[in-house]
Design a protein around this nucleic acid. Sequence first.
DNA 1: CTGTATCCGCCGCGATACTG
DNA 2: CAGTATCGCGGCGGATACAG
Lengths: 126, 126
Amino acid sequence: MQTGTPEEQWREDCAPRRVLELFSTKWTSMILHTVHARHGGSARTGVLHRSLPGISKKMLVQTLRELESSGLINRHVHDSVPPTVEYSLTELGQRLVEPIELIYDWARLNAPALDALQPRQSSRRR
Amino acid sequence: MQTGTPEEQWREDCAPRRVLELFSTKWTSMILHTVHARHGGSARTGVLHRSLPGISKKMLVQTLRELESSGLINRHVHDSVPPTVEYSLTELGQRLVEPIELIYDWARLNAPALDALQPRQSSRRR
DNA sequence: CTGTATCCGCCGCGATACTG
DNA sequence: CAGTATCGCGGCGGATACAG
């Protein structure tokens, strides 16, 4: 008998891979988490910007657009002066954010163990 | 009254962020998933390589080293000729892989909805 | 306040060649 | 088969300036 598990698939265009690729965009998960964590599950642009130290306006908006066109978040513009925009999770987004929360919790739970993490040594060993 | 949720933290060096940064490495989650999915929770280098169409040996080994030094996977060398190496999840890794599996399942479940995804238009709008 | 448009450095990652 | 060493390019993502 051969291996019971005959080589997993991971075709370039499969759904899981496209989703995971979303997360290779540096701020994706942090944005989803922050929107989710806010009261009512919605957050204004400024709040998001201040909640993510280090993010540039460019990347913030760019990532938001990506998530929007992926059907994960909604963008709601209040026509007021000055303009305010609110982002919220869609149905789809709310279900995706759950696993993300688990990873988030996992990280906090294992913070001590993770401190043993090499800050990524340059592998210049030896 | 102010906002009930007073600005989330996301300090540069917090644990969640360092963890999530692991996933900005293109192949991290796919490798973890594949190791996990294999019988006995361990996989040889060649199997991993063949399970991940498109990955280069360089990135495979590099990511594996990263995960190893993060305490997420174990590396076991069989001193045979030719040499074979097996990778398996550590305690820590096994617990982290669970949320990843959820994302994986989520992606497969919502594949139809995701097909409506714009293949990321070049934003050349208008 | 929210969003768009450039410019550009850095490095993630693939291709290739070589060792045990 | 497993792993290391180089080279090089594409593009992620930050800085800055500008507009409604």
